[in-house]
Amino acid sequence: MTEVDDSAEQPPLVRIRGLRFRRGSRWIFDGLDIDIPRGGLTAIMGPSGTGKTTLLKLIGAQLRPDEGTVEVDGENVHALSTPDLYRLRMRMGMLFQSGALLTDMSVFDNVAFPLREHTHLNESMIRKLVLLKLEAVGLRGARDLMPSELSGGMARRVALARAIALDPMMIMYDEPFTGQDPISMGVLVQLIRRLNDAARITSIVVSHDVAETLGIADLVYVISNGRVVESGTPAQLSESGGDWTRQFIRGLPDGPVPFHYPAPPLRGDVLGAQR
């Protein structure tokens, strides 16, 4: 694991201040403040439904906040014009939970897609780059397969190769470990850490897989009820005395997050006439 030694000297790559966002009448974020240091691997953790994926979409400006600002590399992403936002997105990669591969294209064409869209490289150069990216994720031999022929883990590795095709400054990982078998999960964990270290790409991993995420993260934010509950290094969080963080990290069934969804008393509910 690398230390985020530059963070004290350089401004954070992503700075979120006073973020408020709601769906319908429910506030997903209610005054969220987060700094993502450059070159490090920052994890954003929390139980399902806390808006982790929503947060990535807000950072990528696919959603607009009700209040607050999101700055990426010093630019307020929600104040940018469309061409400027697209220029910024070319320096950002995102690994979606489903992989989001284009299903009518082969593995090779999927990885080549951003290169063909945004560069004027000839096909020979594109081929070399694609093969190198696929080699980095261990799937050079799968270049001719279609997405429907890939396992879930392979699809995410291809998506990762596509995400790094343009050598972005940061990559956002949306639940990269969900639904993976132990081998695929181990491969993804190593890949994410290795890419971060080798290319000094700033990584943001959104996940609720505690062991895997704490094993590779430099900095962890735990969010709940629209706010940051706690933040720190994995070691600091593991020793945290906070009830909420302890329940989440140790996977306790009851605690500040109750086992029962709010409901009227059982006796009245079961024996009463109402539905």
Binding site: Q62, F96, A100, H118
Partner: peptide, 21 residues
């Protein structure tokens, strides 16, 4: 289905406008 499987979102994040492409 492209929307449901996040392919359209994926294009947006690759700085490709799905409405044009």
């Amino acid at each position: 289905l492209m929307k449901a499987t996040e392919q359209l979102s994926g294009l947006e994040m690759m700085a490709v406008n799905p409405q044009y492409r």
